[in-house]
Design a protein around this nucleic acid. Structure first.
Length: 202
DNA sequence: CATGTCAACGAGACAG
DNA sequence: CTGTCTCGTTGACATG
């Protein structure tokens, strides 16, 4: 269902949905100074002992999972990179990891989560679009119903028009057909023939 | 304290 | 088999 143009590269966060701010800068905005205290978490573990993450826990027990917060600069560069490409090849990943002082795995995870957020945003926008569409269709439906009622009210006596009296309009395709081939009433239009003095617009 | 955000993880699918 | 993806979830942390 390609409702919105899947313009791949730049469809992501350029449109802001109210109440949904996943842009990293705003995230850091609140805790800019505070985040700096946690930067040691963002350090590439390779600079210290065994670059095998922080899970080189003795006793095989699972290491405590600490929350990594990316710095503003890291987020910015990742976003830039994401704008250029939504996926990374191993070489790009490695380079980016080195540049950002993160593990390649972290880069990979960030891109996975970023794609997920992007998709979520896209879905929300489509949902919004469909809701609006539904609303306008409902409104149009009501309008047409009113119109049918008005037309029906205009039909006072027995139909005197010769050819038109045997005509009915398919509510679905809005085509005028003869009574010999009655269309199934898709809308709540009674089975009885509807008399159309004149066909409106379409 | 309830809730939202987001990095991280595991499972399962898939391509090469 | 390996690497990467999506999807669903978890857990740390921030915020009102």
């Amino acid at each position: 269902m390609a409702i919105l143009p899947e313009n791949s590269s730049n469809l992501d966060l350029t449109i802001s949905v109210p109440g949904f701010s996943s842009s990293p800068p705003s995230d850091e905005g609140s805790g800019g100074g505070r985040e700096q205290l946690k930067l040691d978490m963002n350090r590439l573990p390779s600079c210290e002992d065994g670059d095998d993450e922080e899970l080189s826990h003795h006793d095989g027990s699972a290491p405590p999972r600490k929350k990594l917060r990316l710095t503003r600069e890291q987020s910015r560069l990742l976003e830039d990179s994401f704008r250029q490409n939504h996926t990374l090849n191993p070489k790009q990943k490695e380079a980016l990891a080195k540049h950002l002082m993160l593990r390649p795995r972290q880069i990979e995870v960030w891109f996975q989560n970023r794609r997920a957020r992007s998709k979520l945003k896209q879905t929300e926008m489509e949902c919004e679009y469909l809701k609006r569409w539904f609303g306008s269709l409902t409104e149009q439906n009501h309008r047409l119903h009113r119109e049918v009622e008005e037309l029906r009210a205009m039909k006072v006596g027995p139909p005197t028009m010769t050819s038109a009296s045997s005509m009915t309009m398919c509510p679905r395709c809005e085509r005028v057909t003869t009574a010999a081939s009655p269309s199934k009433g898709v809308l709540a239009v009674p089975a009885k023939k509807t008399f159309l003095p004149q066909e409106r617009e379409h």
